[in-house]
Amino acid sequence: MNNEAIKDLLYKMADDALVIGHRNSEWTGIGPMLEEDLAFSSMAQDKVGHAQALYQILHDVLGEKSPDILAFQRSEKDFKCCQLVELPIGEYDFSLVRHFLFDHAEMVRYEMLVTSSFQPLAQLARKIKGEIKYHVMHADTFLKQLAHGTEESHACMQSSLDYAMPYALGIFEKSEYEEVLISEGIFAGEEKLQEKWLEKISAIVNGAGLKMPEVPDSKIVYGGRRGYHSQYLEPLLDEMTEVTQIDPNAEW
């Protein structure tokens, strides 16, 4: 199997999960209501757990450094996350819309990976299936609720959707390994993923009475997968690694 191709896939998945997990955890303690504060925080924690599991595979199976080093001691340029996950949390409507767009893509990706020829990933996909199902259930429920809520909540959801969509389409930025991943049965590819994702979210967005934004190809925000990030990633990493940087070799 082509290890470089698998590493590339694992890094982008892990970095996406770590960064969105960190972002969403910024709501902890200031969520809109107690129940939602807890739910959103738990899901953020799940995301960090997914990142940890993926870094662990990189370490155990592919000889990369330990999960802590991969998470806390790589430079911004080495991160492969898409720019969608880097954006600041904004208002709650944006965080919810991002959660909706990202988690649907994640669910479809893991569904496709259940049959991956790379066993460790196929096993992980089976293990976290239920967790991701709840994340999507939560996102869909909120999207519907707020889209049908008041005029204001509807408008907020629509404008966040319009703002987030060009970034969300950047999730599916192709890597140089697409063909290898597909031919070796590791992953069916970003194009296929995007197609299935679009079909799913369009039905839910339209069903909620919102409009699917039309995004011309030239407006899609690519770059993250190749290490080109928005201005927001560096400060996030600085904050996330603040404690580690004091003494990177400390024993916990």
Binding site: M33, E35, S42, T141, Q145
Partner: peptide, 15 residues
């Protein structure tokens, strides 16, 4: 606390 049964279930799961 929730406005609909669906929202109540989403919250109940995490609480």
């Amino acid at each position: 606390h929730a406005s609909t049964p669906e929202m109540a279930m989403i919250f109940a799961k995490e609480q």
